[in-house]
Each structure stands twice: as structure tokens, then as C-alpha cells.
Design a binder for these strands. Sequence first.
DNA 1: TTGTACGCGTTATCAC
DNA 2: GTGATAACGCGTACAA
Lengths: 339, 339
Amino acid sequence: MQKKITTIKDIAESCGVSMTTVSLVLNHRPNNVSLATKEKIIRTADECDYRPNGIARSLATKKSNTIGVIVPDISNSFFSDSVKSMQIELDKHGYTVLLCNSEEQFANDVKYIKLLSNRQVDGLILTVSAETMADNQWTTVRDLISSLKIPTVLYDRFFPGDQPKVYVDNTQGAYELTKHLIENGHKEIGLITGPLDLIGTQGRLAGVQKALKEAGLSIKKEHIVNATYDIDSGRQGAKKLLGKVSAIFAFNDMQAYGVLDSARERHMLIPRDVSLVGFDDIFYSAVLDMRLTTVSQPVKEMTKALCSLLVRAIEDHATANDEISIPGTLVKRDSVRTI
Amino acid sequence: MQKKITTIKDIAESCGVSMTTVSLVLNHRPNNVSLATKEKIIRTADECDYRPNGIARSLATKKSNTIGVIVPDISNSFFSDSVKSMQIELDKHGYTVLLCNSEEQFANDVKYIKLLSNRQVDGLILTVSAETMADNQWTTVRDLISSLKIPTVLYDRFFPGDQPKVYVDNTQGAYELTKHLIENGHKEIGLITGPLDLIGTQGRLAGVQKALKEAGLSIKKEHIVNATYDIDSGRQGAKKLLGKVSAIFAFNDMQAYGVLDSARERHMLIPRDVSLVGFDDIFYSAVLDMRLTTVSQPVKEMTKALCSLLVRAIEDHATANDEISIPGTLVKRDSVRTI
DNA sequence: TTGTACGCGTTATCAC
DNA sequence: GTGATAACGCGTACAA
């Protein structure tokens, strides 16, 4: 029974050379090892199917080749698309993704940031939870990540400060969407917003106001429903708005689905009885039986920008505090009618 | 300027005790350390916000507290729901998820299994890619994981062999669904299947046949479209089946969405012109404007069973070769009409 | 061209 | 009660 060879030490012994030599050869470093021994080492490593122990390597190099990703809810298509894209992009640079779901909870944001930091991630991609943004808890998170000295990029949601961030241009997107509604003759517009603590929500609100102002219109207080970014909020918003407005702007697609659901229950048809627009253009919005007019978030573009930003920050030890805002695209489909 | 304290060594020096003592105290191990020193250690650790280096700990304990998860496509809601559930479940046991997308490619299955193994994951959750299941490439994967000696559980898709696996009872689900169609008077049923190499697909097919046989019915060769589990397959299947059958059984919900999309293009209404059922009951199926009749996969139940199985395998060093098949639930909604 | 020796931060064993 | 000392597996300056 042959002793199993698993470590560099084993290979070194088996080949009658030093560990240094083996290490140099196996890592393809500039070396002056003779071709003969080089081949011998590679051959035995191959034969024994040697695999370096990543943990030990990480300890020695102080590099885990791991990026922590924290999202509020990966079952939301926007985030699962994003995570997929990040994973593929980071893999190109040799990084693997450690994934955490905060479930929109502040406590989990803190818990997972610490956990990932303990796991020595080389970088961090963070979409803060809605709860964190409320009650100014984000200062805690901000201070935490800046104390950890781990390159971090905020994605989609962010808070004031000089952390690098990547997000869609919310104001521009909401502006175009609202303008589209106005151009189609809508004057009574209802809004289902996200949490007002989120800067993204504020941006979308600003876009709406800008478009309204340009058209000399305004929006009634009672036609603005402040909610969260989930499907139930859409349902509840619909309850308050259906019948009172000619168009509903749900601040994300999930909410719009909720509106769709409520409308069906009341036997109302979209866009006949009410027009509807969303935001995000998650996968299913193009596929739903009622194809949703919305603003497309350029997920791939954003994640590419984000990953290259992050990788640069890690590898060049640069403390880039870039703020990248990428425009969304108005996608006109079937959920808006002209009146 | 106070020297920053980051390691156990630092704490030991600062407190004038040995590293052993510090380690014992900080890890809450059974120890006979005096209360005084114990408190002192904890206090300085607290003050300096000491965080253990997980990498070093892993090297010493030979445990990474990390589970590798490989899925074919996390942007598919079935998998993103699953991954979310796994992450939450594993977190309870102190494990973090290293996530990889195989993009349905054999090469990536192999690449990521090796990568995760190098990263010393304590366990592996694997949904093999469709490509792997074709051409008998799965033997490679099977041999690879059994050579690695890493506790592995197959999820959803699997291959013959004694690896532990968790999946929905495909035959039962498809049987109930088909029976439901038959009970509603459908005799001409069209099938859009998944890759026939997948055992799950074979199971669903068996369920269909069983129900047909019981009813003394059969299905025409030309009404079976072999495809893959994505939305485009649904569209293409629809092209071949629409107008020729009274009901279409898409082997997963994504395909059903494709059928929905194609039907709309041709101005056909579901279920008026054709009935439609899917499989999986992914989130959006309950929400679509056309609420889909389908079989619900008990994702939470499956992932819970899976994670506890895996954790037990890891912690008890048990080589459980359990095979857990959980029944799905027929969810009757609006996409089937009685004829 | 190759080898020695130490460091990475933690845990584990045993002796005092 | 406490403290040396040796692993864990790999990387790397420096020496030969």
C-alpha cells in the first residue's frame, strides 16, 4: 500500500528535493530549477493528483482569494441575477464568492460583515438591508466597514460617505418613466415607493418630481404610498390606489407584480383600467402575461464595473472612492395605455 | 500611539499570560483558569476588538466551516430559493456558503468541485449540470467526488450511485399533474420534457405514463418535445404543440413561461385555447397574470433535510448514503380548463 | 541550481 | 492553574 501523497513535503521527499524547489515549480514562479527535476516534480504531482491546501496557502500569503457578498434577499431576481454575474466575473480574477443573505435585517448585516472579515475575505460587496438604512443604523455599518480596512464596494443601495459604490441612476430612470406616463396622457399618477431611508428611493422620487414639474403637474399626497420593496407592498399599495389614479408607478417590479395580483382579484385589467410601470426589469417582467413597462437595470454592466473596481482596489491597494452611476433604460412594453 | 492588538499572541503579551491560556478562555473551553486572569483576558480582547483569524484557525483545526454549493444557474428561481434556504439553514450550524454557478457546463462542474476541494470545504452540495448528465460524463464527476472524501449531497439532479441525495418525488408529482389534466377531460396532451439524461426527467416521464396507462390513454410520439429546462425550450415546444393538443405539460415552470409567451404572440389564450401545467412552482408562478397550475417543490423542506443530512455526515463522520425523496404538492390554479 | 529556516495565527499535547 | 512546544501546510528571504 503506497503512502498517499498530499502535501508539498510529501512530493519533496518523494522526489528527493527540497520543499522550496517543489513550491517554486508548482506555482510556476521564475526559477532556475533544472528541467529534469522540474519535470520529475510535475510528473509526481500529477500522478498523485496533488492539490495545494488553499487554507494553508492563504495563511502564508495573507490572501484568501475570496470575496464576501451580502445581499438582502437572493430570492429576489434582481439580486440573484446580480450575484450570478458577480460570481462569474470574480471567477475570472480567481476569486470565489462567500454568500450571505441579510434578510433585510440590520443585525445580520453586522453579523455577516464581521463573520466575513474573520474569514479574511479579500473584498466585500454589500447591499445594505432596508432596516440598516432606517433609524440611522447605517452609521454603525459604515464605521464598521471602514474600521475593518477591507476593500468594500456598496451595490445598489448605499449611504452617504466616501465608500465606493455602484448603482443605477435612479433619478434619470424614474424621470424617463414618469415622462413616458405623462406623454401618454396620464395626469393622475399614483406612487408606491420603497423605504424613504434608501437613497435610491429618494433618487427615484426626485426623478418623478422633476418630470412632473416640467409638465406643470403635481401629485396628491394621498396618492403616494410609502412601502417596502416586496410584493405585498404592491398589493397593499394597489388597495389604496386602484380606482383613484389612471397610472401607478411601482418603485420596483416586485411591487408591480403585487399590483398586478390585486388588480386581477378585482377583475380590473391592465392597462385598460389602470396603467402600470415598475423599476428593475427583472427577468420575469418580459415574460409575464402582462408584459411590464419598466426601467431596465443594467445588471451585467453594473456588476462588471463593480468587480473590476473591487479587484483593482484589492490588487493595487488603491483606496478608490469611486461612485459609479449607470443609466437605466426605459423598456416600453404593454402595461401603459394612451389616454 | 498604542500598538494595535490583533492576535492571541498580542493579548497574551499584554496580559502577561501564555497564549494557551488566552486561547482556552476566548474559546470558552473547559479550563481551570482563575477568574481574575479570565476576566482580564476577556476585557482586553474586548477592548481591542480582537477577532480570531479564521484562516489560521481552520488550518489548525482542519475545519473550514464552509460548505461549497454548486448550482447550474442561480438566476433560476428554483435554485435561488434553494440557495437562500441552504444559506440560512447552514448558518444555524456555523457554516458559510461558497457559491459557484456551473452554467450547465460539465467543465465547470469539474473545475468548481476541485476548486472548492482545494479551499477545504467541509461539505459539498451539488446540482450537476445538464451537460454532465449527458454522454455519461457523470461518471467522471461521481468518481471525482468519491475520490475527494468530502461529504457530498446531490440536490435535485443526481446520477446512479450511493451518494446521498435529496430530491422531489418526480414520478408522483408528474402523475398527479397528469391525472389532474385527464380528470379535466384532456385526452390529447403535449409534453415538453427536460433532458432525458436527467433522472428527474425520467421520473416525470414515468409519472405521466403511469397516469395515462391508468386512464387507458396514450400519447403520440410527435406530441413529445425533448428539450432543456429553460424558457426558450418552452417557446420552441409551444411552436410544435400549439393547435395540436388540448393541454401542454411543461416539465418545469420556466418552460411553461415560454409557452405562455408564445401563446400570447399568437393571440391564443390560456386556458381557453390550450391548458398548461408546469413543475416546480417557482415564486412567480403564483403571481403571473396567468396563475399557473403546477407541482410545488417543497424547497424549504428539501433543503432542511439536505442540510441536516450533510451536517450530520460532517460532524459524525458518518458516511450516510441516504436517499431522500420528498413528495411535491399539486397546486391547482387557473391555467387548466375543463373540457 | 538547490536547501535551510522561519513566519503566518491558531489549536493541541503534555509537562510543570 | 499555567506555560512551553509542536503541529497545521505553504511561501519566501537568505544562505550555500
